[in-house]
Amino acid sequence: MAAHDGPLLSVRDLTKRYGQRIGCDDISFDVWPGEVLAIVGESGSGKTTLLNCISTRLPATSGTVTYQMRDGQPRNLFEMEEAERRHLLRTDWGFVHQNPADGLRMTVSAGANVGERLMAVGNRHYGQIRETATDWLSRVEIMAERIDDQPRAFSGGMRQRLQIARNLVTAPRLVFMDEPTGGLDVSVQARLLDLLRGLVADLGLAVIIVTHDLAVARLLSDRIMVMKDGHVIETGLTDRVLDDPQAPYTQLLVSSILQV
């Protein structure tokens, strides 16, 4: 892998409009290799729209998103061919959905869900694929004997852990996460967050995580970006923003959590 001095991802003047309605407006930021950026805000703040534009799942109205490819060359994602973007999503990127059913094939086995990603990067040896899949299931705390079970036989927490294994098995450099703990019981959330924190640190992943939960942002992220009505209200190191928020909206968000 080539060494890079610059950011892994650069977003400049990104705007998404739905007619007259603003999804996100004039947003710029960088994400560096190994950095975890949390995008936080209440429902409707534009954070998921922004995530979907950055990951090319949604076309932007204007702006650029530049990604540093493995060969060291920066590429404007919006100028890439669709096939190139799909290849990135299957190999160098991961995308962890809030609902794991959106990120898994529910009618094939757990092992096949992980193995598909390996095949996308050129693995063809069945035994090696199964061995790697088994190893990754154990890393996300799924017993090896469940490798041939379909995800629909799994609990919500197990499905989410399987989705994480499917995304991380190809050693991506950038992972997008959309409310990865949403809809899970508190105890399951805690275990999943602990698992995620360990994997992100071990693998040196760059992560952009969207969450409305400031506790999730504090636990996982290095830097935080607060959004409201499609605009970035405040950004900075996570502990600084949460411990000493400057913008009135951020102060309100933080105080509302403290009062719960």
Rank of each mutant, 00 (worst) to 15 (best):
L203Y: 15
D102W: 12
S62W: 04
I142F: 03
F29N: 02
M119G: 03
M158V: 13
L58H: 00
V226F: 11
A190C: 04
T181L: 12
R161I: 06
D243Y: 14
T61H: 00
A217Y: 08
A201S: 15
N123D: 08
V200G: 03
E42D: 14
P74V: 11
R146M: 07
D243G: 15
N52H: 11
D71L: 10
R166E: 04
E81N: 11
I39G: 10
D239K: 13
I164K: 12
V11A: 03
Q251K: 15
T238I: 14
G156W: 01
V260T: 10
M106Y: 13
V11C: 03
A215M: 07
G19F: 04
L162A: 05
R191S: 01
I54N: 01
R105H: 06
F95D: 00
T170F: 02
H231L: 15
M227Q: 02
L237W: 14
T134D: 05
R21M: 07
L199Q: 11
S138G: 10
N76F: 14
D135H: 07
I142Y: 04
S10H: 08
I54E: 00
A101W: 05
G44D: 06
G44H: 11
F154R: 14
A133V: 06
R85S: 08
S138F: 06
Q189E: 04
A171G: 00
F29A: 08
L37W: 04
T61Q: 01
G103K: 15
M227E: 01
D92M: 01
I257Y: 15
R90T: 05
L174K: 11
L196S: 07
S155L: 02
L88W: 08
A83R: 14
D229A: 07
R173T: 03
G157E: 07
V188T: 15
T61Y: 02
D194T: 15
I257E: 13
F154N: 09
P248K: 14
S255N: 12
R218N: 11
